[in-house]
Design a protein around this nucleic acid. Sequence first.
DNA 1: GAGTTTGAAACT
DNA 2: CAGTTTCAAACTC
Length: 786
Amino acid sequence: MDVVSPELNILLPDEIMDTEAIVMDDDPPAESPTASGQSQPSDDAPIPMETDVLAVPEIVSLCSDATPTQRTQALTTSITTDSTLCSTTSATQLLLTPSIASSSPLTLRPATASTLTSTSPGVVSLTSGGLQKLSANHQIILNKVASSPGADTTRSPGTTTITPGGQKFMVTAIGKSGQSIVLQLPHTGSKPGSGQGEAKAHPQHFKVLTIGGRTDLKPVMVGQAVSSASQVSTLQAQQLKTVQVRPDIFVILLDFSPQFRDIRLIVSLVPSQQLLYGLGRVLSTSSPVTSPRTITLSETLSSSSKIAISPLKSPSKLTVVSVASQVPNSPQKSVSLPLNMAHLGQQILVQQSTATSPAKVVSSHSTPMKPVQTVTVGGPQFKTIFPLSTSSNVQQIQVPGSRFHYVRLVTATTGSSTGQAGSHCTNSSMTAKPMVVNTAQVRMSVPIIPAQTMKQVVPKPLTSSGQLLTTQTQQRLIMPATPLPQIQPNLTNLPPGTVLAPGSGNMGYAVLPAHYVTQLQQSAYVTLASSSGFPNPTGIQTQARLPLNGLSTSDAASRPRKPCNCNKSQCLKLYCDCFANGEFCQNCNCTNCFNNLEHETERAKAIKACLDRNPEAFKPKIGKGKEGESDRRHSKGCNCKRSGCLKNYCECYEAKIMCSSTCKCVGCKNFEESPERKTLMHLADAAEVRVQQQTAAKTKLSSQISDLFTRTTPSITSGGGRMPFTFVTKEVAEATCECLLEQAEQAELIQQPQATAERMILEEFGRCLMRIISSAGKTDCPSINC
DNA sequence: GAGTTTGAAACT
DNA sequence: CAGTTTCAAACTC
């Protein structure tokens, strides 16, 4: 099912996600449409609140249009913060993990509640100044819900009640008086608003939020299911606000402690009846938080998914993770897509939709998630959420003029998502005030170039439509927010589907180093797995075992990258290829490496320093030619002295381009008419051709032998088996001769003496015979490889 | 694998 | 900008 992410995209204007920008509206909209079509008039007295809300629907049923059966699904949400990471690695994790039980309600417990008491079996009330009562029914009621079924009528301002056995999760007094939002959560075998006893028949599993660590608050097991979940946490929520931008989508604003004040829970009911919820965070300009954090959102309804997103360091940046879930009865599976963009404070909005695929553990590259792309362009804060297609892959995109590599997350699924993406952009640009480039109008000449081979690979221009892959449904461009003004002009060439969003202040541009996502995925998984007490699905530990530098197996194969061996540069200098390519060091041999998540600050400073020294430090050195490789040239030119520019010391030679007038090399032999260069090229070409011919010959031989098996009649047998000579047909003989000729040519190329050449040929002949004999001895059709 | 060579990056 | 130093990759043995 498609995730209607544009809604979220539209529904998340700046003022919603930006704490600083939120303008509380004391007057609710006269008509506050609700997804459920219900109306929850609130005649209760105004409840004191710490914050107001922009708009509050009376009742919003997340699955209002869903059938009772569809409503049977339940959610369990947990937000945890690994404080240990914060202390040790300056990284904080925020985990939102609805999981465990299929019948668990969405549980959100801002744990900054000063007190948490268990009023009755299965009922836990926690009180805080800004929190409201939470009822673990299959509803989330925001603001007043006096008449809501299952609501705790005894609630009081600042009280949050969690009733595991119920079917409602109620949050009251978070909005204006008389206003409420009821998030109807599906619950198996129970009606919305049904009593607690029914909930007992369907044990609830709670996972409690943990964000930050208030010393004055003890982790509390909420309900019996919490004990089983063993995921007790503390959420430093001091205020809870709700903002409904549209009838079907609203945002729960959780004002946590200062360091977590930017956390947002976004819940939406998309037209497809999907429940979308997720975390978003905004770093306000006043946010003192500078330490890197990782936000991981995970959900398990009948399925689970995880998204890890690093929070932003730069002010007014936004990271939103949204998870859409449905598939009430689909087999359990684990889906993970951590997106961590923490390093450079990039903007990321991620929306995920779990698919109805059979139970399986999906790797990071096959996860049925729909990553979104967000490009920060500068200006006021903006956020966009796009649905990310399932089975997304990561492709690298090289933005002209930028050495950084953008990542395009594409999906293997075919469909009309491309147009949909454009539509999203259009909608976003129409709805959202911040400027959003309609990518449908963008013409992108962005090649997808492996980062490591950037200097060597001729960029592949896109088609006129800018569409690289016809099968991709979404193009995602995720860029960290490192300011790279120099690439600004090139952003106009972003591919369709790219969303250009204004950044915050001077942090105009976000650049995603190559394999940023994949690398961060791996990192996030590691971090996730290390989260204390987190019920890590088995898939998490296995799905993110990416090869070098976060590359997928296929990527690694196509773009092998050497691990660096830096010792003194901390991998924060351009000496380090990883750093120079905008990648994290992973599986490298470096020591004292700072090019990782744990050293965001240092890395950001190093990037800035490099840019200060050379604003084009991260631009590709090899300029892209207009018509291919012939026009490629080193932008700066080499400065070789002794290598003659015919060794890999020379960047030009390494990039397989000839030196140009920009080079300052001495004794250069890397020019068109250079005999030395021609010799090298000839040898290289000869070697390549030789390998190809040899491969072809061997393949042919194998094919001939295989064919022989199929054609040989059983009449020619000896003792029940075919005689070896029956396999030496004309075709086999020819193929063998080709192998021998290839061997002879090879011996000649390497200038071997005649005796050696003869020996090589004979050895090859012997190998051919052995293959033939071996094939003859097999009963099945063999496949012989020389 | 250790040592050397090399040239870009960093520094002065 | 030029000279020097530092650094890590490329190269050799």
